[in-house]
């Protein structure tokens, strides 16, 4: 249905406007005016009072996210710098070894001869696999040093005591032979008991060459086995005698007498 007034202008007639203006114009009372004005003034004053505490414009509040982020980064970086060693250990393969192994290694380390421990820095002990080759090389060098020491010691004894041909041959074979196959540094760390056990197993298998090498090594590395109070002393003595024929006591030449 079409609006019949649609074509007419949407405003009131001038006559109606005139009559409307001719009406009495009501206005609010003075009390009402005062009440509203006092409300406006009090609102303005309270707004001024509120403005005294400028919280929103605070520097720290405005930049709270960047500042807190920077502080967090600084804190973490400081922690990492302070605990650098621990971090490296955590990141290394060593951290995956069982706890018992670590404890055992510590115990074994305490039994190592001082020379060996000194020559093997802590950093090398816990070095990651990346440096393993280097560690092995150092271990090989160390073993060679040990080997040479043993040989020189034996040779010294021979020269003094006039060793027999059998012993000479053994020494010769030792000196001619290649150095002991190098083992990783970690494998070298064994207790005296373990070394004796290993020696016993070699004797049982009649691997005399290896057994001899081991005896010499044990003699060098575990001097405490010579002590009669040592729990492994008897075993060590028996086994070593089986492997290496004891050298005859040097005979004093008649001329010296």
């Amino acid at each position: 249905m079409k609006d019949e007034n649609a074509d007419k202008p949407a405003e009131f007639d001038a006559e109606i406007k005139l009559w409307y203006r001719a009406q009495a114009q009501e206005t609010p009372s003075a009390e009402l005016d005062d009440a509203i004005m006092s409300l406006a003034k009090s609102a303005n004053q309270s707004k001024k009072a509120d403005n005294l505490v400028v919280v929103d414009n605070s520097f720290w509040r405005r930049h709270r996210w960047p500042i807190s982020s920077a502080a967090s980064v600084m804190f973490v970086a400081t922690l990492l710098l302070i605990n650098q060693d621990e971090t490296q250990e955590l990141l290394s393969d060593e951290s995956y070894a069982p706890v018992m192994m670590q404890m055992e290694a510590d115990a074994q380390e305490s039994e190592l001869p001082v020379t060996l421990r000194k020559s093997e820095p802590r950093a090398m002990m816990s070095a990651p696999s990346v440096d393993e080759q280097q560690v092995q090389l150092q271990g090989a060098a160390q073993n060679e040093v040990i080997q040479v020491d043993v040989i020189s010691e034996v040779a010294k004894d021979v020269s003094l005591q006039g060793r027999n041909a059998d012993v000479k041959a053994k020494i010769k074979s030792l000196s001619d032979s290649k150095p002991i196959k190098t083992m990783p540094q970690r494998d070298a760390v064994v207790s005296a008991k373990q070394a004796v056990n290993h020696l016993e197993s070699l004797v049982k298998q009649e691997q005399w060459v290896e057994a001899e090498k081991l005896v010499l090594k044990i003699r060098k590395n575990y001097p405490q086995l010579k002590n009669e109070d040592h729990p492994q002393h008897l075993r060590w003595k028996t086994l070593s005698e089986q492997v290496i024929i004891p050298l005859p006591k040097p005979s004093v030449p008649a001329s010296d007498k």
Binding site: Q25, E26, P28
Partner: peptide
């Protein structure tokens, strides 16, 4: 007025008070 000038509000009020009052009363 929002910046604290109460006299500005007074001017505004005087200008519009009659019309608004009659809007309600009528």
């Amino acid at each position: 007025y929002s910046q604290g000038d109460t006299s500005a509000f007074e001017s505004l009020y005087q200008k519009h008070k009659g019309g608004l009052y009659r809007y309600f009363v009528r």
